[in-house]
Nucleic acid binder design. Structure first.
Lengths: 245, 245
DNA sequence: TAGTGGTCTAGACCACAGT
DNA sequence: CTGTGGTCTAGACCACTAC
Protein backbone atom coordinates (compact mmCIF):
# COMPACT_ATOMS: atom_id res chain seq x y z
CA UNK A 1 0.00 0.00 0.00
CA UNK A 2 1.56 3.24 -1.12
CA UNK A 3 0.84 6.78 -0.09
CA UNK A 4 -2.62 8.13 -0.67
CA UNK A 5 -3.02 11.24 -2.74
CA UNK A 6 -4.45 13.31 0.08
CA UNK A 7 -3.27 16.62 1.42
CA UNK A 8 -4.74 18.91 4.03
CA UNK A 9 -4.68 22.67 4.25
CA UNK A 10 -4.71 23.80 7.84
CA UNK A 11 -5.40 27.40 6.91
CA UNK A 12 -8.62 26.44 5.19
CA UNK A 13 -11.88 26.97 7.07
CA UNK A 14 -13.01 23.55 5.82
CA UNK A 15 -12.74 21.00 8.65
CA UNK A 16 -9.74 18.72 8.33
CA UNK A 17 -11.77 15.52 8.50
CA UNK A 18 -13.94 16.79 5.68
CA UNK A 19 -11.00 17.71 3.46
CA UNK A 20 -9.70 14.17 3.88
CA UNK A 21 -13.09 12.55 3.33
CA UNK A 22 -13.74 14.55 0.18
CA UNK A 23 -10.42 13.63 -1.37
CA UNK A 24 -10.82 9.97 -0.53
CA UNK A 25 -14.30 10.07 -2.01
CA UNK A 26 -12.97 11.56 -5.22
CA UNK A 27 -10.29 8.87 -5.44
CA UNK A 28 -12.91 6.18 -4.99
CA UNK A 29 -15.23 7.71 -7.55
CA UNK A 30 -12.39 8.17 -10.01
CA UNK A 31 -11.32 4.58 -9.56
CA UNK A 32 -7.88 5.45 -8.20
CA UNK A 33 -8.98 3.57 -5.12
CA UNK A 34 -10.47 0.51 -6.77
CA UNK A 35 -13.28 -1.52 -5.17
CA UNK A 36 -11.80 -3.98 -2.72
CA UNK A 37 -8.72 -1.88 -2.04
CA UNK A 38 -7.61 -2.00 1.56
CA UNK A 39 -6.68 1.27 3.21
CA UNK A 40 -3.73 1.59 5.57
CA UNK A 41 -4.78 1.49 9.18
CA UNK A 42 -5.98 4.56 11.04
CA UNK A 43 -2.76 5.21 12.89
CA UNK A 44 -0.65 5.14 9.75
CA UNK A 45 -3.10 7.32 7.87
CA UNK A 46 -3.22 9.82 10.70
CA UNK A 47 0.59 9.94 10.80
CA UNK A 48 0.91 10.36 7.04
CA UNK A 49 -1.36 13.39 7.16
CA UNK A 50 -0.12 14.65 10.53
CA UNK A 51 -3.59 14.38 11.99
CA UNK A 52 -4.72 12.86 15.24
CA UNK A 53 -6.33 9.47 15.12
CA UNK A 54 -9.81 10.72 16.15
CA UNK A 55 -9.79 13.19 13.26
CA UNK A 56 -8.75 10.50 10.82
CA UNK A 57 -11.47 8.25 12.22
CA UNK A 58 -14.04 10.97 11.69
CA UNK A 59 -13.10 11.18 8.02
CA UNK A 60 -13.38 7.43 7.59
CA UNK A 61 -16.63 7.25 9.50
CA UNK A 62 -18.10 9.85 7.18
CA UNK A 63 -17.39 7.62 4.18
CA UNK A 64 -18.57 4.47 5.95
CA UNK A 65 -21.86 6.25 6.68
CA UNK A 66 -22.06 7.13 3.01
CA UNK A 67 -21.66 3.50 2.05
CA UNK A 68 -18.33 3.90 0.24
CA UNK A 69 -16.15 2.08 2.76
CA UNK A 70 -16.68 -0.90 5.03
CA UNK A 71 -14.62 -1.74 8.08
CA UNK A 72 -14.16 -4.81 10.17
CA UNK A 73 -12.39 -4.95 13.48
CA UNK A 74 -9.17 -6.89 13.30
CA UNK A 75 -9.18 -6.74 9.53
CA UNK A 76 -9.18 -3.23 8.19
CA UNK A 77 -10.98 -0.75 6.01
CA UNK A 78 -11.84 -1.51 2.39
CA UNK A 79 -13.56 0.13 -0.54
CA UNK A 80 -17.01 -1.30 -1.27
CA UNK A 81 -17.38 -3.42 -4.40
CA UNK A 82 -19.77 -1.17 -6.26
CA UNK A 83 -20.09 1.86 -8.39
CA UNK A 84 -22.34 4.21 -6.54
CA UNK A 85 -25.03 6.23 -8.07
CA UNK A 86 -26.43 9.16 -6.18
CA UNK A 87 -29.12 8.10 -3.76
CA UNK A 88 -32.00 9.84 -2.05
CA UNK A 89 -31.05 12.71 0.16
CA UNK A 90 -32.91 15.43 1.90
CA UNK A 91 -33.39 17.48 -1.21
CA UNK A 92 -36.33 18.12 -3.42
CA UNK A 93 -37.14 16.50 -6.73
CA UNK A 94 -36.26 19.82 -8.32
CA UNK A 95 -32.72 19.78 -6.91
CA UNK A 96 -32.28 16.18 -7.98
CA UNK A 97 -33.31 16.90 -11.54
CA UNK A 98 -31.04 19.93 -11.79
CA UNK A 99 -28.12 17.86 -10.54
CA UNK A 100 -28.75 15.07 -12.99
CA UNK A 101 -28.73 17.52 -15.87
CA UNK A 102 -32.41 17.36 -16.64
CA UNK A 103 -34.33 20.57 -17.24
CA UNK A 104 -37.17 20.73 -14.77
CA UNK A 105 -40.02 23.14 -15.17
CA UNK A 106 -43.00 23.58 -12.94
CA UNK A 107 -46.61 24.58 -13.37
CA UNK A 108 -48.39 25.81 -10.28
CA UNK A 109 -51.97 24.61 -10.57
CA UNK A 110 -53.22 25.94 -7.30
CA UNK A 111 -51.89 27.85 -4.31
CA UNK A 112 -54.22 28.82 -1.51
CA UNK A 113 -54.83 28.85 2.19
CA UNK A 114 -57.11 26.07 3.42
CA UNK A 115 -58.14 24.67 6.79
CA UNK A 116 -55.93 21.66 7.46
CA UNK A 117 -57.57 18.26 7.00
CA UNK A 118 -57.09 16.05 10.03
CA UNK A 119 -54.31 13.98 8.49
CA UNK A 120 -52.28 17.04 7.57
CA UNK A 121 -52.85 18.82 10.90
CA UNK A 122 -51.61 15.66 12.57
CA UNK A 123 -48.51 15.38 10.45
CA UNK A 124 -47.61 19.02 11.00
CA UNK A 125 -48.53 18.99 14.71
CA UNK A 126 -51.05 21.79 14.25
CA UNK A 127 -54.48 22.30 15.76
CA UNK A 128 -57.23 20.76 13.67
CA UNK A 129 -58.54 23.21 11.10
CA UNK A 130 -55.56 25.50 11.56
CA UNK A 131 -54.98 27.26 8.28
CA UNK A 132 -52.23 25.92 6.06
CA UNK A 133 -50.90 26.76 2.64
CA UNK A 134 -51.74 24.16 0.03
CA UNK A 135 -49.72 23.95 -3.16
CA UNK A 136 -50.53 21.80 -6.16
CA UNK A 137 -47.88 21.57 -8.85
CA UNK A 138 -47.11 19.61 -11.97
CA UNK A 139 -43.43 18.96 -12.55
CA UNK A 140 -41.93 18.42 -15.99
CA UNK A 141 -38.52 17.09 -16.93
CA UNK A 142 -37.36 17.52 -20.48
CA UNK A 143 -40.82 18.70 -21.47
CA UNK A 144 -42.52 15.53 -20.32
CA UNK A 145 -44.70 15.47 -17.19
CA UNK A 146 -43.03 13.63 -14.35
CA UNK A 147 -44.88 14.23 -11.12
CA UNK A 148 -48.04 15.61 -9.57
CA UNK A 149 -47.23 17.18 -6.25
CA UNK A 150 -49.35 18.44 -3.39
CA UNK A 151 -47.69 20.15 -0.45
CA UNK A 152 -48.92 21.66 2.80
CA UNK A 153 -47.02 24.22 4.86
CA UNK A 154 -47.80 26.02 8.11
CA UNK A 155 -48.66 29.67 7.50
CA UNK A 156 -46.10 32.38 8.06
CA UNK A 157 -42.99 30.31 7.52
CA UNK A 158 -41.90 31.84 4.25
CA UNK A 159 -43.37 34.02 1.56
CA UNK A 160 -44.50 31.86 -1.31
CA UNK A 161 -45.89 32.94 -4.65
CA UNK A 162 -46.65 31.01 -7.83
CA UNK A 163 -43.95 33.00 -9.63
CA UNK A 164 -41.26 31.93 -7.17
CA UNK A 165 -42.44 28.33 -7.29
CA UNK A 166 -42.14 28.20 -11.03
CA UNK A 167 -38.53 29.32 -10.87
CA UNK A 168 -37.29 27.50 -7.77
CA UNK A 169 -37.79 24.27 -5.90
CA UNK A 170 -39.91 24.41 -2.75
CA UNK A 171 -36.98 23.35 -0.59
CA UNK A 172 -34.84 26.06 -2.12
CA UNK A 173 -37.46 28.62 -1.11
CA UNK A 174 -37.63 27.22 2.39
CA UNK A 175 -33.86 27.38 2.81
CA UNK A 176 -33.78 30.91 1.42
CA UNK A 177 -36.37 31.79 4.06
CA UNK A 178 -34.07 30.60 6.82
CA UNK A 179 -35.66 27.20 7.32
CA UNK A 180 -32.98 24.53 7.82
CA UNK A 181 -34.34 21.08 7.02
CA UNK A 182 -32.81 18.28 9.01
CA UNK A 183 -35.03 15.20 9.10
CA UNK A 184 -37.73 13.77 6.84
CA UNK A 185 -39.90 10.70 7.14
CA UNK A 186 -41.09 9.21 3.87
CA UNK A 187 -43.42 6.46 2.79
CA UNK A 188 -43.09 5.06 -0.71
CA UNK A 189 -45.84 3.03 -2.33
CA UNK A 190 -47.58 2.46 -5.63
CA UNK A 191 -51.06 2.85 -7.09
CA UNK A 192 -52.88 2.88 -10.39
CA UNK A 193 -53.56 6.17 -12.14
CA UNK A 194 -57.10 7.56 -12.15
CA UNK A 195 -58.40 9.09 -15.35
CA UNK A 196 -57.57 12.62 -14.21
CA UNK A 197 -54.08 11.68 -13.03
CA UNK A 198 -53.41 9.82 -16.26
CA UNK A 199 -54.42 12.86 -18.27
CA UNK A 200 -52.13 15.17 -16.32
CA UNK A 201 -49.18 12.80 -16.51
CA UNK A 202 -49.60 11.64 -20.12
CA UNK A 203 -50.21 8.10 -19.00
CA UNK A 204 -53.18 5.83 -19.56
CA UNK A 205 -55.78 5.08 -16.93
CA UNK A 206 -54.52 2.31 -14.63
CA UNK A 207 -50.84 2.94 -15.34
CA UNK A 208 -48.58 2.21 -12.37
CA UNK A 209 -47.61 5.31 -10.40
CA UNK A 210 -45.11 5.66 -7.57
CA UNK A 211 -46.44 7.46 -4.52
CA UNK A 212 -44.39 9.26 -1.92
CA UNK A 213 -45.60 11.07 1.16
CA UNK A 214 -43.16 12.98 3.26
CA UNK A 215 -43.08 15.04 6.43
CA UNK A 216 -40.02 17.23 6.87
CA UNK A 217 -38.65 18.73 10.08
CA UNK A 218 -36.29 21.65 10.62
CA UNK A 219 -33.27 22.06 12.85
CA UNK A 220 -35.33 22.65 15.97
CA UNK A 221 -37.56 19.68 15.35
CA UNK A 222 -40.63 21.50 14.01
CA UNK A 223 -42.65 19.90 11.21
CA UNK A 224 -42.41 22.39 8.35
CA UNK A 225 -43.77 20.58 5.33
CA UNK A 226 -46.07 17.74 4.41
CA UNK A 227 -46.14 16.51 0.84
CA UNK A 228 -47.88 13.80 -1.10
CA UNK A 229 -46.53 13.17 -4.58
CA UNK A 230 -47.33 10.97 -7.57
CA UNK A 231 -44.58 9.97 -10.00
CA UNK A 232 -44.75 8.26 -13.36
CA UNK A 233 -43.16 4.90 -12.69
CA UNK A 234 -42.11 4.76 -16.33
CA UNK A 235 -39.82 7.72 -15.80
CA UNK A 236 -38.83 7.79 -12.15
CA UNK A 237 -37.60 5.59 -9.33
CA UNK A 238 -35.96 6.02 -5.94
CA UNK A 239 -32.43 4.95 -5.17
CA UNK A 240 -31.17 4.53 -1.66
CA UNK A 241 -28.25 3.18 0.28
CA UNK A 242 -28.71 1.33 3.55
CA UNK A 243 -25.98 1.01 6.13
CA UNK A 244 -25.88 -1.50 8.96
CA UNK A 245 -24.93 0.00 12.36
CA UNK B 1 -34.59 21.12 32.95
CA UNK B 2 -34.40 18.41 35.56
CA UNK B 3 -32.28 15.27 35.70
CA UNK B 4 -32.71 12.69 32.99
CA UNK B 5 -33.60 9.15 34.00
CA UNK B 6 -30.39 7.66 32.67
CA UNK B 7 -27.89 5.51 34.47
CA UNK B 8 -24.79 3.72 33.24
CA UNK B 9 -23.27 0.47 34.36
CA UNK B 10 -19.52 0.51 33.91
CA UNK B 11 -19.20 -3.21 34.52
CA UNK B 12 -21.46 -3.98 31.58
CA UNK B 13 -19.83 -5.00 28.30
CA UNK B 14 -22.31 -2.73 26.49
CA UNK B 15 -20.53 0.46 25.42
CA UNK B 16 -21.34 3.44 27.62
CA UNK B 17 -22.47 5.64 24.74
CA UNK B 18 -24.88 2.91 23.68
CA UNK B 19 -26.33 2.46 27.15
CA UNK B 20 -27.06 6.19 27.24
CA UNK B 21 -28.46 6.29 23.71
CA UNK B 22 -30.76 3.36 24.34
CA UNK B 23 -32.20 4.86 27.50
CA UNK B 24 -32.74 8.23 25.87
CA UNK B 25 -34.42 6.50 22.94
CA UNK B 26 -36.76 4.69 25.31
CA UNK B 27 -37.63 7.94 27.05
CA UNK B 28 -38.40 9.55 23.72
CA UNK B 29 -40.48 6.63 22.52
CA UNK B 30 -42.34 6.47 25.82
CA UNK B 31 -43.07 10.19 25.67
CA UNK B 32 -41.18 11.02 28.87
CA UNK B 33 -39.06 13.21 26.64
CA UNK B 34 -41.80 14.93 24.68
CA UNK B 35 -41.31 16.22 21.13
CA UNK B 36 -39.71 19.66 21.27
CA UNK B 37 -38.06 19.07 24.64
CA UNK B 38 -34.63 20.62 24.88
CA UNK B 39 -31.88 18.51 26.39
CA UNK B 40 -29.26 19.96 28.76
CA UNK B 41 -26.02 20.74 26.98
CA UNK B 42 -23.33 18.15 26.39
CA UNK B 43 -21.08 19.23 29.20
CA UNK B 44 -23.84 19.10 31.80
CA UNK B 45 -25.07 15.74 30.55
CA UNK B 46 -21.57 14.32 30.59
CA UNK B 47 -21.07 15.56 34.15
CA UNK B 48 -24.40 14.19 35.35
CA UNK B 49 -23.45 10.74 34.11
CA UNK B 50 -19.76 11.05 34.94
CA UNK B 51 -18.81 10.53 31.33
CA UNK B 52 -16.41 12.44 29.14
CA UNK B 53 -17.85 14.87 26.66
CA UNK B 54 -16.81 12.85 23.58
CA UNK B 55 -18.65 9.81 24.92
CA UNK B 56 -21.76 11.84 25.59
CA UNK B 57 -21.50 13.32 22.11
CA UNK B 58 -21.31 9.84 20.62
CA UNK B 59 -24.57 8.89 22.33
CA UNK B 60 -26.29 12.01 21.06
CA UNK B 61 -24.90 11.60 17.57
CA UNK B 62 -26.30 8.09 17.46
CA UNK B 63 -29.80 9.44 18.07
CA UNK B 64 -29.35 12.34 15.68
CA UNK B 65 -28.37 9.85 12.98
CA UNK B 66 -31.49 7.90 13.81
CA UNK B 67 -33.61 10.99 13.31
CA UNK B 68 -34.85 11.23 16.90
CA UNK B 69 -32.93 14.36 17.89
CA UNK B 70 -31.90 17.51 16.05
CA UNK B 71 -29.14 19.85 17.09
CA UNK B 72 -28.20 23.35 16.18
CA UNK B 73 -25.00 25.08 17.10
CA UNK B 74 -25.50 27.91 19.56
CA UNK B 75 -28.98 26.63 20.38
CA UNK B 76 -29.04 23.11 21.70
CA UNK B 77 -30.38 19.64 21.19
CA UNK B 78 -34.11 18.95 20.90
CA UNK B 79 -36.44 16.03 20.40
CA UNK B 80 -37.95 15.88 16.91
CA UNK B 81 -41.64 16.68 16.58
CA UNK B 82 -42.83 13.31 15.39
CA UNK B 83 -43.81 9.89 16.43
CA UNK B 84 -41.46 7.54 14.65
CA UNK B 85 -42.45 4.33 13.09
CA UNK B 86 -39.80 1.82 12.25
CA UNK B 87 -38.18 2.53 8.91
CA UNK B 88 -36.25 0.50 6.37
CA UNK B 89 -33.11 -1.05 7.67
CA UNK B 90 -30.70 -3.60 6.38
CA UNK B 91 -32.95 -6.50 7.19
CA UNK B 92 -35.07 -8.74 5.08
CA UNK B 93 -38.78 -8.59 4.50
CA UNK B 94 -39.03 -11.72 6.62
CA UNK B 95 -37.41 -10.03 9.62
CA UNK B 96 -39.63 -6.99 9.18
CA UNK B 97 -42.79 -9.06 9.14
CA UNK B 98 -41.79 -11.04 12.20
CA UNK B 99 -41.06 -7.84 14.06
CA UNK B 100 -44.36 -6.28 13.15
CA UNK B 101 -46.21 -9.31 14.46
CA UNK B 102 -47.33 -10.67 11.12
CA UNK B 103 -46.94 -14.36 10.41
CA UNK B 104 -44.84 -14.76 7.30
CA UNK B 105 -44.64 -18.01 5.45
CA UNK B 106 -42.65 -18.77 2.36
CA UNK B 107 -43.03 -21.05 -0.63
CA UNK B 108 -39.87 -21.85 -2.54
CA UNK B 109 -40.87 -22.12 -6.17
CA UNK B 110 -37.45 -22.77 -7.57
CA UNK B 111 -33.87 -23.10 -6.35
CA UNK B 112 -31.14 -23.98 -8.78
CA UNK B 113 -27.72 -23.11 -10.08
CA UNK B 114 -27.75 -21.09 -13.28
CA UNK B 115 -25.16 -19.22 -15.36
CA UNK B 116 -25.38 -15.56 -14.31
CA UNK B 117 -27.13 -13.26 -16.77
CA UNK B 118 -25.05 -10.21 -17.63
CA UNK B 119 -26.96 -7.87 -15.34
CA UNK B 120 -26.57 -10.15 -12.34
CA UNK B 121 -22.91 -10.93 -13.02
CA UNK B 122 -22.33 -7.18 -13.15
CA UNK B 123 -24.14 -6.49 -9.91
CA UNK B 124 -22.26 -9.25 -8.09
CA UNK B 125 -18.90 -8.43 -9.69
CA UNK B 126 -18.58 -11.94 -11.12
CA UNK B 127 -17.32 -13.15 -14.46
CA UNK B 128 -20.04 -13.36 -17.06
CA UNK B 129 -21.69 -16.79 -17.00
CA UNK B 130 -20.19 -17.62 -13.63
CA UNK B 131 -22.60 -19.95 -11.91
CA UNK B 132 -24.89 -18.46 -9.31
CA UNK B 133 -27.70 -19.74 -7.13
CA UNK B 134 -31.10 -18.50 -8.19
CA UNK B 135 -33.98 -18.55 -5.73
CA UNK B 136 -37.59 -17.81 -6.53
CA UNK B 137 -39.95 -17.48 -3.60
CA UNK B 138 -43.47 -16.39 -2.85
CA UNK B 139 -43.92 -14.73 0.51
CA UNK B 140 -47.20 -14.72 2.42
CA UNK B 141 -48.21 -12.62 5.39
CA UNK B 142 -51.28 -13.66 7.31
CA UNK B 143 -52.12 -16.21 4.63
CA UNK B 144 -52.28 -13.63 1.87
CA UNK B 145 -49.57 -13.42 -0.81
CA UNK B 146 -47.40 -10.36 -0.35
CA UNK B 147 -44.34 -10.57 -2.54
CA UNK B 148 -42.70 -12.44 -5.39
CA UNK B 149 -38.98 -12.58 -4.82
CA UNK B 150 -36.06 -13.59 -6.99
CA UNK B 151 -32.57 -13.65 -5.53
CA UNK B 152 -29.13 -14.48 -6.87
CA UNK B 153 -26.13 -15.47 -4.73
CA UNK B 154 -22.56 -16.39 -5.58
CA UNK B 155 -21.96 -20.11 -5.15
CA UNK B 156 -20.24 -21.45 -2.07
CA UNK B 157 -21.19 -18.68 0.31
CA UNK B 158 -23.62 -20.62 2.46
CA UNK B 159 -25.50 -23.87 2.27
CA UNK B 160 -29.04 -23.19 1.16
CA UNK B 161 -31.91 -25.62 0.86
CA UNK B 162 -35.62 -25.13 0.17
CA UNK B 163 -36.38 -26.48 3.65
CA UNK B 164 -34.22 -23.88 5.36
CA UNK B 165 -35.66 -21.11 3.19
CA UNK B 166 -39.19 -22.01 4.19
CA UNK B 167 -38.31 -21.71 7.85
CA UNK B 168 -35.94 -18.73 7.86
CA UNK B 169 -35.36 -15.48 6.03
CA UNK B 170 -32.56 -15.41 3.47
CA UNK B 171 -30.65 -12.80 5.47
CA UNK B 172 -30.95 -14.92 8.57
CA UNK B 173 -29.34 -17.82 6.70
CA UNK B 174 -26.57 -15.58 5.43
CA UNK B 175 -25.80 -14.30 8.91
CA UNK B 176 -25.87 -17.82 10.30
CA UNK B 177 -23.31 -18.72 7.63
CA UNK B 178 -20.96 -16.04 8.85
CA UNK B 179 -21.80 -13.39 6.26
CA UNK B 180 -22.01 -9.95 7.85
CA UNK B 181 -24.08 -7.60 5.71
CA UNK B 182 -23.04 -3.99 5.88
CA UNK B 183 -24.24 -1.99 2.88
CA UNK B 184 -27.08 -2.34 0.39
CA UNK B 185 -28.08 -0.29 -2.61
CA UNK B 186 -31.76 -0.32 -3.50
CA UNK B 187 -33.92 0.99 -6.27
CA UNK B 188 -37.63 1.31 -5.69
CA UNK B 189 -40.09 1.67 -8.54
CA UNK B 190 -43.53 0.59 -9.68
CA UNK B 191 -45.07 -1.40 -12.51
CA UNK B 192 -48.31 -3.03 -13.55
CA UNK B 193 -48.87 -6.72 -12.86
CA UNK B 194 -48.70 -9.18 -15.74
CA UNK B 195 -51.28 -11.94 -15.86
CA UNK B 196 -48.91 -14.46 -14.27
CA UNK B 197 -47.81 -12.06 -11.53
CA UNK B 198 -51.42 -11.13 -10.81
CA UNK B 199 -52.35 -14.79 -10.44
CA UNK B 200 -49.51 -15.47 -8.01
CA UNK B 201 -50.25 -12.40 -5.92
CA UNK B 202 -54.06 -12.56 -5.94
CA UNK B 203 -54.29 -9.29 -7.79
CA UNK B 204 -55.87 -8.48 -11.12
CA UNK B 205 -53.91 -7.94 -14.29
CA UNK B 206 -52.60 -4.36 -14.41
CA UNK B 207 -52.72 -3.85 -10.64
CA UNK B 208 -50.00 -1.53 -9.33
CA UNK B 209 -47.00 -3.38 -7.88
CA UNK B 210 -44.02 -1.98 -6.01
CA UNK B 211 -40.66 -3.13 -7.32
CA UNK B 212 -37.42 -3.25 -5.40
CA UNK B 213 -34.04 -4.36 -6.62
CA UNK B 214 -31.19 -4.59 -4.20
CA UNK B 215 -27.51 -5.47 -4.14
CA UNK B 216 -26.08 -6.22 -0.71
CA UNK B 217 -22.43 -6.11 0.36
CA UNK B 218 -20.70 -7.72 3.33
CA UNK B 219 -18.20 -6.36 5.81
CA UNK B 220 -15.28 -6.67 3.41
CA UNK B 221 -17.09 -4.99 0.56
CA UNK B 222 -17.99 -8.10 -1.47
CA UNK B 223 -21.33 -8.21 -3.25
CA UNK B 224 -23.10 -11.19 -1.70
CA UNK B 225 -26.69 -10.94 -2.89
CA UNK B 226 -28.75 -9.50 -5.70
CA UNK B 227 -32.50 -9.50 -5.42
CA UNK B 228 -35.41 -8.27 -7.46
CA UNK B 229 -38.75 -8.26 -5.70
CA UNK B 230 -42.36 -7.47 -6.51
CA UNK B 231 -44.74 -6.36 -3.76
CA UNK B 232 -48.48 -5.89 -3.76
CA UNK B 233 -48.88 -2.14 -3.40
CA UNK B 234 -52.22 -2.73 -1.74
CA UNK B 235 -50.52 -4.42 1.18
CA UNK B 236 -46.99 -3.06 1.40
CA UNK B 237 -45.01 0.17 1.33
CA UNK B 238 -41.54 1.36 2.31
CA UNK B 239 -40.88 3.77 5.14
CA UNK B 240 -37.63 5.63 5.50
CA UNK B 241 -36.02 8.42 7.43
CA UNK B 242 -33.67 10.89 5.79
CA UNK B 243 -31.10 12.89 7.71
CA UNK B 244 -29.32 15.99 6.49
CA UNK B 245 -25.57 16.02 7.15
C1' DT C 1 -21.63 38.62 25.95
C1' DA C 2 -22.91 34.07 27.41
C1' DG C 3 -24.04 29.61 25.95
C1' DT C 4 -24.20 26.14 22.57
C1' DG C 5 -22.41 22.55 19.52
C1' DG C 6 -18.22 21.66 16.10
C1' DT C 7 -13.51 20.46 15.68
C1' DC C 8 -9.09 18.78 17.18
C1' DT C 9 -5.37 16.72 20.01
C1' DA C 10 -2.55 12.90 22.42
C1' DG C 11 -2.79 9.70 24.67
C1' DA C 12 -4.98 4.87 26.93
C1' DC C 13 -7.01 0.27 27.09
C1' DC C 14 -9.93 -3.26 25.00
C1' DA C 15 -12.14 -6.80 21.67
C1' DC C 16 -11.75 -9.22 17.72
C1' DA C 17 -9.48 -11.49 13.42
C1' DG C 18 -6.08 -14.00 11.37
C1' DT C 19 -1.43 -16.08 12.00
C1' DC D 1 0.98 -13.69 18.71
C1' DT D 2 0.32 -9.22 15.96
C1' DG D 3 -2.53 -5.93 13.88
C1' DT D 4 -6.86 -3.96 13.36
C1' DG D 5 -10.77 -1.08 14.61
C1' DG D 6 -13.88 0.20 18.95
C1' DT D 7 -14.23 2.76 23.09
C1' DC D 8 -12.98 6.25 26.39
C1' DT D 9 -10.69 10.18 28.66
C1' DA D 10 -9.51 15.27 29.68
C1' DG D 11 -8.55 18.70 28.09
C1' DA D 12 -8.33 22.94 24.17
C1' DC D 13 -9.98 26.37 20.88
C1' DC D 14 -13.41 27.95 17.56
C1' DA D 15 -18.00 29.31 15.17
C1' DC D 16 -22.47 30.23 15.55
C1' DT D 17 -26.91 31.86 18.01
C1' DA D 18 -29.47 34.61 20.76
C1' DC D 19 -29.84 38.24 23.94
Amino acid sequence: MTQLAVTVDRRSPVPLYFQVAEQLEQSIMAGTLAPGTRLPNEIVLADQLSLSRPTMRQAIRYLVDKGLLVRKRGVGTQVVQSQVRRSIELSSLYDDLIRSGQHPTTTVRDLRVVPAPEEIADALSLAEKAEVIRIRRLRYAQDEPLALMTNYLPQGLVDITPEKLEQHGLYELLRAGGVQLRVARQTIGARSATVAQARDLHETKGAALLTMTRTAYDDVGRAVEYGTHLYRASRYSFELTLIER
